[in-house]
């Protein structure tokens, strides 16, 4: 017996899309909603709550409230976290994820293919290494004793050893994240440069353009969309990232960005305080920013190609 097209459509959808829908609903969409609810409760270690809805958590963030001592402490750390986040995101993005990624993309594509690929492979190494290993390498590099790799080099050229984690914490996390972050831009820019038609370069060269005017007039115009994409996407990624900061710096106050604050107050191993509602309130700020940015990304999407209509019309 033959099934009807309608029943086949239903069973196809269930078979092909069902697993993805179920997983996304439970572990992606539901968490967004749960987070919004929890942010308006007073949930803490015991994992239940008495107050709902309450803006207590946001009051803690925003201004002094009656729970004086705790209130002051949290409020201060939140403002500080806000500032640190801003510095961290702007510096890492500006120096590494954009500028340096662009330099890497330009230089590696200017070399013969094999050599360019080699250097790109080197720069992808940190991204491919497990985060705990990468963080460990950093601890060895910035070790405050004479054993630290950085200090060995400093001493070799006649300087005093330094304790980078203590004296320049922001520099440490910016560089540590930046060396990883640069590789994504590098890859995207490389493939964008590669897809510029060869004849544009020939034409420019025939017109007497030197390497810098080729970059300025041929390459950069082709990178307009990729650069916007990387800027938005990486700003968002840095805004919420805490894994490397946590693994390298631990719960240090000097690098307590918003994402770090949310993580250390709740789930961080050994030190996590289980203040779930408070963490959720911070996370909600990040989520709202996240959704806004994600919507902004729409503008960068080629909707027509994405939604192109399937051509076969039978099931």
């Amino acid at each position: 017996m033959r099934t009807t097209p309608r029943t086949r459509a239903v069973s196809d959808t269930a078979l092909f899309l069902g697993p993805a829908i179920v997983l996304l609903a439970i572990f992606f969409v539901a968490p967004i909603l749960v987070n919004i609810v929890v942010a308006f409760t007073d949930m803490s270690q015991t994992l239940d709550f008495k107050d709902f809805p309450t803006t207590k958590q946001f009051n803690k963030l925003g201004k002094l409230d009656d729970e004086a001592l705790l209130g002051i402490e949290l409020r201060r750390s939140f403002y500080k976290a806000l500032m640190l986040t801003l510095v961290f995101v702007v510096l890492t993005l500006g120096i590494f994820n954009l500028t340096f990624a662009l330099i890497l993309g330009l230089t590696t594509t200017a070399l013969p293919d094999r050599m360019g690929a080699f250097f790109r492979a080197v720069w992808l190494l940190p991204r491919m290494s497990p985060s705990v290993v990468y963080a460990l390498l950093w601890l060895w590099v910035v070790d405050s004793t004479e054993r630290g790799l950085f200090n060995q080099i400093l001493m070799a050229v006649g300087f005093e050893p330094m304790n980078l984690r203590l004296d320049h914490p922001m520099a440490v996390i910016v560089v540590a994240n930046g060396l990883i972050g640069a590789s994504l831009g590098m890859i995207i820019f490389t493939s964008a440069i590669r897809s510029i038609p060869e004849h544009l370069f020939h034409a420019a060269r025939a017109d007497g353009a030197g390497p810098f005017s080729i970059i300025r007039h041929v390459i950069l115009p082709a990178l307009r969309w990729p650069i916007s994409y990387i800027t938005i996407y990486q700003a968002l990624a840095l805004l919420v990232s805490f894994e490397y900061i946590f693994l390298i710096m631990g719960p240090a106050r000097s690098t307590m960005t918003m994402a770090m604050l949310s993580y250390t107050k709740t789930l961080a191993p050994q030190i996590g305080g289980g203040q779930y509602a408070y963490g959720a309130a911070i996370a909600m700020i990040l989520i709202v920013i996240g959704i806004l940015v994600a919507l902004a990304m729409w503008r960068l999407t080629n909707m027509k190609a994405l939604l192109q209509r399937p051509r076969i019309e039978v099931r």
């Binding site: 987070n35 996370a283 996240g290 940015v293 990304m297």
Partner: peptide, 9 residues
């Protein structure tokens, strides 16, 4: 595009 790591809690 959503920063999924914010959903850890």
């Amino acid at each position: 595009a959503f920063p999924a790591i914010t959903l850890v809690i």
